[in-house]
Amino acid sequence: MNKLNLRRELISARASLSPEQQRANSIKIRETLLDQPWVQMAGLVACYWSTGSEPDTHGLVFALWKHGATVILPVLLEDNDLDWAVYDGPDSLAPGRFGIMEPVDTRRGVDAVRTAALVIVPALAVDRTTGVRLGRGGGSYDRALARVGPNVPTVALLHDGELIDGIPAEPHDRHVRFAATPEGLTRLM
């Protein structure tokens, strides 16, 4: 199956999840991540502010921030690359491009993700064998992940059934080291 058709299939499956199931999935994912010592000890975390049917990150971002981590969130640039700015509580966000909430703090540049001790990214699916993530096709997170060091934990947040086999990969596609689903955390690499 090609990427376009796979994306359509996954987006359709996500749309069929009830709000209650989405909420329950997000709580399980958040609890799983917050139970990991390497998540608890990460001083600088790059994350994202979820939208639509993505596993919700709002509670995760808030919990990380309340526990003392510095959380940076993406600011989508005109070329679809990601700049980064610090999250400083719910009042520090404003709608950005496409209405996605972004921090209003000073932008730190596209290379700020290099300094993160933990990087949490969105994905529609992740290949359980290779760790290749399937995003929405804009390449924003592939560029960001290309800047992350090889020993930094990178985690994609997924609903059940989105850790799959056979995601078509292209040279620019990046892998993640972990997938967090409602069933738990899977180490991929």
Results as ranks from 00 to 15, higher is better:
87 Y>C: 06
84 W>A: 01
178 F>G: 00
151 N>R: 14
117 A>C: 13
149 G>W: 07
157 L>M: 13
110 V>Y: 08
122 P>Q: 10
127 D>I: 03
116 A>L: 09
100 I>D: 05
146 A>D: 09
116 A>Y: 01
104 V>T: 10
90 P>N: 15
107 R>M: 08
126 V>G: 01
95 P>R: 11
152 V>F: 05
178 F>K: 00
170 E>R: 15
121 V>A: 08
165 D>W: 15
136 R>V: 14
138 G>N: 11
169 A>M: 10
113 V>N: 00
163 L>V: 10
168 P>Y: 09
132 V>F: 09
93 L>I: 07
93 L>G: 03
157 L>H: 06
94 A>N: 08
123 A>V: 02
146 A>W: 09
83 D>H: 02
108 R>D: 06
160 D>A: 14
163 L>C: 12
156 A>V: 03
126 V>S: 02
89 G>M: 09
114 R>S: 11
180 A>Q: 03
147 R>C: 04
165 D>R: 14
82 L>I: 05
113 V>M: 05
92 S>I: 07
178 F>D: 00
171 P>E: 11
137 G>C: 11
112 A>K: 00
133 R>A: 00
128 R>T: 11
147 R>T: 04
127 D>A: 12
105 D>H: 14
180 A>I: 04
107 R>L: 07
164 I>S: 06
180 A>H: 02
126 V>I: 10
150 P>A: 08
133 R>F: 07
176 V>H: 03
137 G>V: 07
138 G>R: 08
92 S>D: 04
115 T>P: 12
152 V>K: 06
124 L>N: 09
138 G>T: 09
176 V>S: 08
183 E>M: 14
171 P>D: 12
153 P>I: 05
123 A>Q: 04
105 D>W: 12
102 E>P: 04
169 A>H: 07
146 A>Y: 08
135 G>L: 04
148 V>E: 00
153 P>T: 07
161 G>C: 08
97 R>V: 10
154 T>R: 00
152 V>S: 06
89 G>N: 05
94 A>V: 11
87 Y>D: 02
91 D>W: 13
105 D>T: 14
87 Y>I: 05
127 D>W: 01
151 N>Y: 13
95 P>Y: 06
105 D>S: 15
135 G>M: 06
183 E>Y: 12
120 I>N: 01
159 H>A: 02
109 G>N: 05
148 V>D: 00
